[in-house]
Amino acid sequence: MSIKQYFFKTDYRFVFLIPVYFLTVAVFAAIAFFNQEWPLFSVLSAFALTIFLFGIYIIKRGLTLLSKVIMLLVNTIFVIFLVVHGGHEHTGYFWVFPILLATIQILGAASGILFACLLVLMIWLLEKWGMTDLALPSRFYFASLALVFISGVHEMALENNRKKLKKQVDDKDNENRLDPLTKVGNRRLVDYELDRMNTQIMDGVAVGALIVDLDNFKKVNDSLGHSAGDEVLKTIADHLTSCIRPSDKVARWGGDEFMVLLYGISLADMERVARRIQESIINDERLESLDVSVSMGGAITSSDYSDLFKAADKNLLSIKNHTKNSFKITML
């Protein structure tokens, strides 16, 4: 695992915003101790606050737990620093408000509200324990809690909208990747899985591709009609689905061919899956009466996923040219 992966889940494009975040916190600390009549005070404050909150909004969904813990630790130290030392003319505590907003942005609605309330409680305890010369008015605490509540409710609404939108997109994507006849995946699903293999970090996970081709399927269509052929395809799809794990994928590759994708599997285990598929189909009396069997070509790799399907197809052709109801699987 690279250093970036400790701090970001997938998207590294905004990793520069992490040091910007800490730099902005330092700017806040400096501003809190400057004379507020300084001509550039308002401009610098607005710019720092914009970068601060906008940066968090962009990166928050890509942060790892470690990044969140570090940022919250910095927030807590900064709040203590502002409250204990007071800032210029005891106005430092005003900068607590953007920290509360940032906390909710980093953690999300529920956890953010809880942690922000704990920060407000910590400020109250620091005052009660005499660790600050500030005499914070009660309206500061009311304003802080009101800000936390309003921001938390807003963030909760945004999270719900994001979940609904994501579900709609996922449902539409799943529908587009589904074969309407057999109710397994279609070629789009295979393309999606291949793209995922090539773009995501698979950490050397072995992936197996098994192309399943129906023997004597044309005879069924010619003698009994396409409706009977459709029933055969649906039956084969059911057998394939029942022979694999929930994490594996089955898709109709085209015509009378299916693609089975197996993740985190060894060559020996993949051969066992192929035998299980064979036995399941052979023991189906209806398929046996129609003289339908399957030939399979497969390949397995943990590195070069782009050649996986070509190798599986090559092995299938090798089987079809010599025999039927058999399989050949090789390791790349």
Score class of each variant (00 low, 15 high):
residue 207 V to C: 12
residue 304 D to A: 10
residue 94 F to E: 05
residue 71 M to L: 07
residue 216 N to S: 02
residue 228 A to P: 10
residue 224 L to K: 14
residue 114 L to M: 12
residue 165 L to T: 12
residue 132 T to P: 03
residue 142 F to N: 11
residue 31 I to C: 09
residue 149 F to A: 14
residue 186 N to L: 03
residue 225 G to R: 13
residue 289 S to M: 00
residue 144 S to H: 09
residue 148 V to G: 11
residue 103 T to Y: 07
residue 99 I to K: 04
residue 19 P to R: 06
residue 276 R to N: 13
residue 130 G to A: 01
residue 103 T to D: 07
residue 136 L to D: 03
residue 148 V to K: 08
residue 18 I to M: 10
residue 26 A to H: 04
residue 239 H to K: 11
residue 21 Y to A: 02
residue 161 N to S: 15
residue 311 A to V: 15
residue 290 L to M: 09
residue 65 L to N: 09
residue 169 V to E: 12
residue 237 A to P: 06
residue 300 I to F: 14
residue 264 G to E: 04
residue 238 D to K: 15
residue 152 G to P: 14
residue 205 V to S: 06
residue 207 V to T: 13
residue 66 L to I: 14
residue 101 L to Q: 09
residue 254 G to Q: 04
residue 55 G to I: 02
residue 209 A to E: 12
residue 3 I to V: 13
residue 180 P to C: 04
residue 256 D to T: 00
residue 1 M to D: 03
residue 108 G to F: 07
residue 132 T to H: 05
residue 63 L to R: 03
residue 89 E to I: 08
residue 169 V to S: 06
residue 69 V to Y: 02
residue 39 P to I: 13
residue 171 D to G: 07
residue 49 L to R: 13
residue 204 G to M: 03
residue 18 I to A: 06
residue 291 D to W: 00
residue 147 L to G: 11
residue 83 V to D: 08
residue 158 L to D: 13
residue 160 N to S: 11
residue 216 N to E: 00
residue 26 A to K: 08
residue 70 I to S: 05
residue 21 Y to M: 05
residue 41 F to E: 09
residue 45 S to V: 12
residue 300 I to H: 14
residue 174 N to I: 02
residue 264 G to N: 02
residue 23 L to M: 14
residue 286 R to A: 10
residue 33 F to Q: 14
residue 223 S to H: 10
residue 24 T to P: 00
residue 51 I to F: 15
residue 275 R to Q: 12
residue 101 L to I: 13
residue 144 S to T: 08
residue 123 I to V: 15
residue 35 N to P: 02
residue 170 D to F: 08
residue 100 L to G: 12
residue 292 V to N: 01
residue 177 R to L: 00
residue 88 H to W: 15
residue 237 A to C: 07
residue 37 E to T: 11
residue 209 A to R: 11
residue 307 D to S: 15
residue 56 I to L: 08
residue 53 L to K: 07
residue 127 E to C: 00
residue 197 M to K: 05
residue 88 H to E: 09
residue 105 Q to G: 11
residue 44 L to N: 09
residue 98 P to R: 12
residue 12 Y to G: 02
residue 198 N to A: 13
residue 79 V to I: 15
residue 36 Q to S: 12
residue 93 Y to C: 01
residue 84 V to G: 06
residue 3 I to C: 04
residue 200 Q to F: 07
residue 105 Q to A: 13
residue 129 W to I: 03
residue 66 L to T: 14
residue 23 L to C: 14
residue 121 L to T: 02
residue 22 F to Q: 04
residue 99 I to E: 05
residue 273 V to L: 05
residue 92 G to A: 02
residue 196 R to I: 00
residue 69 V to F: 07
residue 7 F to R: 01
residue 190 V to L: 15
residue 55 G to Y: 03
residue 144 S to M: 08
residue 309 F to M: 15
residue 286 R to S: 07
residue 61 R to T: 13
residue 197 M to W: 13
